[in-house]
Write a protein that binds this DNA or RNA. Sequence first.
DNA 1: TATAATGTTTGAAC
DNA 2: AGTTCAAACATTAT
Length: 245
Amino acid sequence: MPEGPSIAILRDEASIFVGKRVSRAEGNAKIDMGRIEGQRVVDWRSFGKQTLIVFDGVYVRVHLLMFGSYLINERKDIAPRLGLTFRNGEIHFYNCSVKLLEGDPADSYDWRVDIMSDQWDEKFVRRKFRAMPEELVCDALLDQDVFAGVGNIIKNEVLYLCKVHPLSLVGDLPARKANEIVAQARAYSFRFLDWKKAHVLRKHWLVHNKGQCPVHQIPLSRGYLGHRKRRSFFCDLCQRRYTTE
DNA sequence: TATAATGTTTGAAC
DNA sequence: AGTTCAAACATTAT
């Protein structure tokens, strides 16, 4: 469920609750439900893979992790982690991480790195990307401080589209190629968004979860690469491994 | 049916 | 003290 674009869809679906008062807050999340009950939703934001439900002076941060889900005006049979009821509907979150945080999220998040944000700042992200030359590119793309919202699917697809081997060091990439990865992370995330909305995401995957390179018709290489040990799918012919030599 | 995965935090062990 | 690693959370598709 949860890479940045999916959380942006959630945010848009939940926008009907902005300005509305929470008439009931429930669930097995270990937070003080009384703190938000009766409060008005000031804003509903996303930052990367996180959902931020903003109230006056306090906000709820929801992270769907790997298996989290949500339903609006519907329910599952299992107990919700968090359920919010409004006069015009309700939303329930399941199997996710929920935290109640004091303050204003604007003080804690920098939307310049959020891959889906209007405030996304290409130059700023380029600079941050360049500042991690010792990282493998497959790890760097999953760094939420640089590419907030990019997940494993986007990582695999972007590296394939840019023809870069996942085990290339960021510092070994030519500047033009590094910039291309930054731009493609952004562009691909919005294609992901459109496909996800249309429920046709999977069929557009070029390498993620695939067996063959769509260009060369040869088996893709796969492995749990980098210090994050996340699945990588890549083509040895298409994707160049940049090295210092 | 067993396996593995769109993710992150925590805390123990080195 | 910095790092590395397993554990924990838990659903669903193949």
